[in-house]
């Protein structure tokens, strides 16, 4: 057994153990910490599977921003948790266990019954990489070959933010999401919030740019930009924008909007919906990605900031 195989077995065992622990542990806070660690280890699993693009997304969303979201939820639930002593009834527990076991068995069956070698479009994707002028197959699939899925995914993000905003009370509607954070202006948090964003912004843009030919892209870069924004918000250096602001709403629809315009232009120019003219494929895709990184950064930031809580007045 090679060192790499031993490492993979240990990694899989730890991921499984963490998964079980996260489900079994009683406090919401501990479960959240377990889930964040789980997300980071799953990212390592993706790296071992040579899916670096997925690993980056998993680390940024599953481990990072998702973790922040869950930590916020855990903090909100802390007060109710002390009161809540009654466990769900036996029947509910058994039903949940059976349902989870059946889902697990179905997933395991689906994976184990895959024909070997599995049906794959990967060679076709690699063969047609020239069509867009980009060599990262994941970006090619996301932005060109299956661009429809990606566009709809961005529309889903928009729907998610509308869902979060709709949780606002009538008085706070149109106001600033989340509490106004204050921190010691000479403290370490403010120091970090001044020092890190310039580096983080460069890294975020680099991840977008390098996504054409290497692992990376708008989503991973956008997640980094969002975390830099959230850092300055949490340090009290800036405030969340009011959700009634037209300019910010424009940024929220810029990504899917431009995607849709380019898609319709493809229809108008004769080929098909979302068909890029081969000569302009790369600049068009880059343009969409630039609009999209802004949309993704602002959407993720506002999703974590939460529902509007303070009215503009």
């Amino acid at each position: 057994m090679s060192v790499a195989t031993a490492f993979e077995i240990v990694l899989a065992a730890v991921v499984l153990g963490l998964g079980i622990w996260t489900t079994a542990v009683r406090e919401t806070y501990s479960a959240t910490v377990g889930f964040v660690a789980y997300g980071l280890l799953v990212a390592l699993v993706w790296v071992r599977l040579d899916a670096v693009d997925v690993a980056l997304t998993e680390a940024a969303i599953g481990g990072g921003l998702g973790g922040v979201l869950l930590l916020g939820a855990a903090a909100r639930l802390r007060n109710t948790e002390l009161v809540l002593t009654e466990a769900p009834g036996k029947a509910t527990q058994v039903a949940a266990a059976v349902l989870a076991a059946l889902t697990g068995a179905a997933l395991a069956g689906a994976v184990l019954l895959l024909p070997d070698p599995a049906p794959t479009l990967a060679p076709t994707v690699v063969e047609h990489a020239w069509a867009t002028g980009m060599t990262n197959p994941v970006t090619n699939v996301l932005m060109a070959f299956r661009a429809m899925d990606t566009m709809l995914e961005k529309v889903v993000l928009l729907l998610a933010i509308v869902g979060v905003w709709s949780l606002a009370t009538d008085g706070a509607w149109g106001g600033h999401p989340g509490p106004r954070h204050r921190a010691d202006p000479h403290g370490v948090l403010v120091f970090l919030a001044r020092l890190l964003p310039p580096v983080g912004i460069v890294v975020g843009i680099y991840i977008l740019w390098t996504g054409a030919n290497h692992p990376g892209g708008a989503f991973q870069g956008g997640a980094i930009l969002a975390s830099m924004w959230l850092l300055t918000i949490m340090a009290g250096l800036t405030d969340t924008p009011p959700v009634s602001s037209r300019r910010w709403r424009l940024v929220l629809v810029a990504g899917p909007g431009l995607f849709l315009v380019v898609g319709l232009a493809g229809l108008w120019l004769g080929a098909a919906f979302l068909a890029y003219p081969p000569a302009q494929a790369k600049p068009l895709i880059l343009g969409i990605e630039v609009a999209m990184i802004l949309t993704i950064a602002v959407t993720l930031g506002l999703l974590i900031a939460g529902a509007p809580e303070r009215s503009v007045k």
């Binding site: 370490v188 948090l189 120091f191 970090l192 020092l195 890190l196 580096v199």
Partner: peptide, 13 residues
């Protein structure tokens, strides 16, 4: 360097 910066800040907090 970035891990040290983040680690030092989080430890302080």
């Amino acid at each position: 360097l970035l891990v040290m910066l983040a680690g030092a800040t989080v430890s302080q907090l």
